[in-house]
């Protein structure tokens, strides 16, 4: 693996230059928050930030995405082309939790049978440059409880670590190595590696929240029917913010839109928190109240995903905890489940 040292002041410029050559998505200040968004050519990204309010999944699995197009003929609507091809993309500044979310999404969208061509196309054309959390940014961070680590490279093609006066850049995959020329820098020696090891140990120890996420699975396996579920959901507003900000939530709806003689079939993010999500035409709803919807959300992440993919569908970013308008806290919920 190629390792380089990059001068601190040069990094934003390197990314800005790349933004003129390909689609670059990166953290940017937007009023009082930091959002992950597409850079304009030569726009400089933030290099010093906590994490982005939104998860980067939007650029692999967009909020709204055209699946196919059609047009009216005398015999009915007929197909008139597919979606636009994805373009070469660089994700800059993903935190390790978010980089890891791509691995979890791959499990679902890139299965052996039924591959999702829209996701796979974008994923294949995307290079992920992650930024290690030297100091985990929030007290709500709990990546180490769900299989991640603040300085881990899982899901990243290049991992940057702030060593104080410069960045250590680890070019992990062949895709990442394609960026060697653009990043420049000088070869990193043993000293830099030692520094990284120290930072990694320190960063892990700074994660303030621990959640018994792995211990929840055997309890969930036998507690589908439990009075606990009736105590959980009552303050939930069903706003869906938790699922929209979640880097691993991937449920979607498919709908049609027609203007005069042309139409598109699109998919939009959907949410298990919404009453209509499972409501059938007959009026029957297998998840009739927020109780069943919350049970589904918890079960999906900590039981069903483990059954199907041997992974917890949570990266511990803490976004759902921070954004919930009524302070639902997945860390406490999981901790309570383990005590059942």
């Amino acid at each position: 693996m190629e390792k380089r040292l990059i001068k601190k002041e040069s990094l934003a410029g390197v990314i800005a230059e790349l933004a003129g050559k390909m689609r670059v998505c990166a953290p940017m200040q937007a009023e009082d928050q930091v959002l992950f968004r597409v850079l304009e050519p030569s726009e400089r990204p933030l290099v010093d930030f906590a994490n982005t309010k939104n998860a980067p999944k939007n650029f692999l699995f967009p909020r709204t995405e055209t699946l196919l197009k059609y047009t009216r003929t005398p015999k009915g609507m007929v197909a008139a082309g597919g979606a636009e091809e994805g373009m070469k993309t660089l994700f800059f500044g993903c935190r390790p939790c978010d980089a890891r979310s791509f691995k979890l999404l791959d499990m679902l969208f890139d299965q052996e049978k039924y591959q999702d061509p829209y996701y796979i196309d974008k994923r294949a054309k995307t290079t992920v440059v992650a930024m290690a959390c030297v100091h985990p940014p929030y007290t709500t961070c709990f990546c180490t409880s769900v299989g991640g680590n603040p300085t881990d490279s899982e899901g990243a093609d290049v991992l940057l670590t702030d060593l104080g006066d410069q960045y250590l850049a680890e070019f992990i995959t062949p895709k990442g190595e394609e960026l060697l020329a653009a990043f420049g820098g000088t070869p990193a020696g043993v000293e830099a590696e030692k520094a990284k090891e120290g930072i990694a140990a320190q960063a892990s120890s700074e994660i303030a929240s621990t959640v018994p996420a792995r211990e929840a699975k055997p309890v969930l396996d036998v507690r589908f029917e439990d009075p606990f579920w009736s105590t959980l959901h009552q303050k939930c507003l069903a706003c869906g913010t938790c699922t929209y900000l979640c880097p691993t939530c991937h449920c979607f709806d498919i709908s049609d839109e027609v203007k005069r003689n042309d139409g598109i079939r699109i998919r939009n993010w959907d949410s298990c928190m919404f009453p209509l999500f499972t409501k059938e035409t007959s009026g029957h709803n297998p998840r009739p109240s927020q109780k069943e919807r919350w049970r589904q959300r918890v079960m999906h992440k900590f039981r069903y995903y483990v059954d199907n993919f041997n992974a917890i569908a949570c990266v511990g970013c803490g976004r759902c905890v921070m954004a919930c308008p009524v302070n639902m806290d997945i860390r406490k919920i999981v901790a309570d489940i383990v005590k059942l």
């Binding site: 299965q111 709806d253 999500f277 199907n308």
Partner: peptide, 17 residues
């Protein structure tokens, strides 16, 4: 169950896993 994608992605027709 209510379905959309039909191929195990859209996430609404699961019964357990």
């Amino acid at each position: 169950m209510r379905m959309k994608c039909g191929i195990g992605k859209c996430g609404r027709c699961n019964v357990g896993e």
